[in-house]
Design a protein around this nucleic acid. Structure first.
Lengths: 165, 165
DNA sequence: TCTTGAACCTATAGTCACTGGAGGGTTTAG
DNA sequence: CTAAACCCTCCAGTGACTATAGGTTCAAGA
């Protein structure tokens, strides 16, 4: 049996994060000691390692929840697991493509700035004048502006998922 | 003079987001009509376009705030604007590198899954057994697991900034 | 002029995946 | 026994939005 601290040290997942995962239903509610402290079994350790690994690969909490459910039923067709993994792969590839566009534009802006004062600053000028952009780096999609390092897709996807509940 | 809705249509920034930017100090508090509705000037439109453009390039609200401040002072040296742009460029490049590693691992997992049921599913198996990973895709940095599509650096940076306040 | 629907307002809370702090209880080692 | 480390719950914060409730104003059409 492990304490939460020991579980944390063995998995490199922080104590509050473990509690969070319990709250989110990814981990079963563990037994408690007489002093009301959580006591975990080896199976909990393995579950947490699974979650950690999936998080490292960028799967959302919800996707992980689905994968866990699938993993608990060995007789089910694995098309769903495959789908989840493939969706994540597509998401990552889309993000990479976006970021490369951003990189190109930022590289151009940052290296063209040879002025000495703001009055001559190409960074400021480029941001002020969208026509100076050589590549189309923005998205006209949602009307929001949370588009850059974070993908608009997960948010859009989040809302779709939300509606499906 | 523009209403908030008209400003929104001209900049593709949503109405609530415009209010948010006002709250965050990126946009000046505009004049109001007799009916207490916001009325924006052309300069507000230009400011919002600047913000939109910077957001598209992934600059944080705080970085944009600094850039706006710099842009209001033409006599200042532009080293700071250059630094902000360069930091952002580095951040984007780091993110791309991370995502590439994720992509490689996900591609391998997703394409190796040739089983028919979960019991034989390589996706589930790979997530359960970290030793099946061919590349090191995780970060041992923070002990949290918010490491994948989002960079750990901004969070770490946030906390540093937070402490500095 | 009146009506009605669209657009506007503020306040508050939610999204996602954590993360931090307050205030207090339990365990462990010296 | 004592102090330090660890544990607990509760609540709120992070960043950049986004949504909803309940109410007011505006503009177009009859």
């Amino acid at each position: 049996m492990y304490s939460i601290g020991e579980l944390s040290r063995r998995t490199s997942v922080k104590v509050p994060t473990i509690r969070y995962y319990e709250q989110m239903g990814l981990i079963d509610t563990p037994e408690r000691s007489e002093g009301n402290q959580r006591r975990y079994a080896r199976s909990d350790l393995e579950r947490l390692a699974f979650i950690r690994h999936a998080r490292d690969l960028g799967f959302t909490i919800d996707a992980i929840r689905q994968l866990i459910d699938l993993g608990d039923h060995a007789e089910r067709p694995c098309a769903d697991a495959d789908r989840i993994a493939t969706e994540q792969l597509v998401s990552v590839r889309t993000r990479i493509a976006q970021l490369r566009r951003l990189e190109a534009e930022l590289a151009r802006i940052a290296t063209c700035c040879t002025g000495e004062t703001i009055g001559e600053c190409y960074v400021i000028r480029a941001l002020s004048d969208h026509s100076l952009c050589e590549s189309e780096h923005s998205h006209a999609a949602s009307g929001g502006t949370n588009l850059a390092l974070e993908s608009p897709e997960p948010q859009a996807l989040k809302h779709q998922i939300h509606k499906r509940r």
